[in-house]
């Protein structure tokens, strides 16, 4: 039992990073109706930039903020230079563009930073704490806290601010939103920047635990995507829940069965969820493209 508790505690840690990445998928899906397969790269950019700034001797918090800012600039660039000009293309074309972006970003990262894993310093030492019998690294606490803060900030922005309501309106009915003065170029920019920031925070906080490398975005992106599908990609809370569930299942499966089986079991869960609820745990029934 105490073993299970340990697996659950570690699972929630990774799961909360998946949750952040899954929310990035969900945001862009809701805004554009497409899957952004480059989503995992924002986590990689956050992690590798954090490492880079740490190498330059930057203090922790400025390095973290700068790393997230790098990802935000990349997100803004993707929106402005690539996705917005191509917005009238067919959905399949747009999805392939994001696949291309994914490869391109990974390639650039490899050129800049090489392929070797690098160790990223944790935010506050290598200590660990005991939580009702389970051991939890302090960095894991930072991951949980960071994920909660970012998720809450995103929620408050969308639900409680006038601009956030406008973004929800544009996701709901893009044409009506334009009729009422909402500029699709700006809104696309805000969406991509938000998706980049939440992904980068996840990657940067996770990196001290797992190490970082230029290829880490692929796995993280895939996990976040699976999480988003499990939870329901057209619902932000759903995507977050799906990410958490995936982290839990992987951790428990790795603990009880074998870590080589963890991914296989996670996909089996995805398969089962899709059989029972094709729209995901919290997704809405209407599968329409916005």
């Amino acid at each position: 039992m105490s073993l299970l508790w340990q697996f659950v505690v570690s699972g929630v840690g990774t799961g909360s990073v998946y949750a952040l990445i899954a929310m990035g998928y969900s945001l862009i899906y809701k805004e554009t109706g497409i899957i952004n397969f480059a989503q995992g790269e924002f986590a990689m950019i956050g992690a590798m930039s954090l490492w880079m700034f740490q190498q330059q001797g930057w203090p922790l918090i400025p390095a973290l903020i700068a790393a997230v800012a790098v990802a935000a600039v990349v997100g803004a660039g993707i929106s402005r230079i690539v996705m917005h000009p191509a917005r009238h293309s067919a959905p399949l074309t747009l999805i392939f563009i994001t696949l291309g972006l994914d490869t391109a970003l990974r390639g650039i990262a490899t050129l800049l930073w090489g392929v070797n894993p690098v160790a990223v310093n944790p935010l506050s030492g290598n200590g660990s704490i005991h939580l009702i019998g389970a051991v939890l690294s302090v960095q894991n606490l930072w991951v949980l806290l960071g994920a909660a803060v970012v998720a809450l900030a995103l929620y408050l922005f969308l639900e409680r601010t006038y601009l956030g309501r406008g973004m929800e309106a544009a996701m709901d009915n893009p044409q009506a939103a334009q009729l009422f003065g909402m500029d699709p170029l700006k809104f696309s920019l805000y969406t991509w920047i938000s998706a980049a920031i939440i992904g980068a925070v996840g990657g940067a906080l996770l990196a001290p635990i797992t190490t970082a490398n230029a290829n880490m975005g692929l796995d993280l992106g895939l996990s976040g995507f699976v999480g988003a599908i499990i939870g329901g990609i057209d619902s932000l809370p759903g995507a977050a829940l799906g990410g958490l569930v995936l982290g839990l299942v992987q951790s428990v499966a790795a603990g009880y069965v074998s870590s080589t089986w963890a991914d296989g079991i996670a996909y089996a869960v995805l398969f089962l969820v899709l059989l029972v609820r094709p729209q995901g745990l919290m997704g809405s029934h209407a599968q329409h493209r916005v």
């Binding site: 006038y162 309501r165 406008g166 929800e168 309106a169 709901d172 009915n173 044409q175 009506a176 939103a177 009729l179 009422f180 003065g181 909402m182």
Partner: peptide, 23 residues
């Protein structure tokens, strides 16, 4: 006031009205 209304169906009535003043 568009054909088939085109309201923001997932938003509340209050939000729909307020967002009419977005510009």
């Amino acid at each position: 006031v568009p054909e088939r209304r085109q309201i923001f169906s997932h938003l509340t009535v209050e939000d729909n009205l307020q967002l009419g003043a977005f510009h």
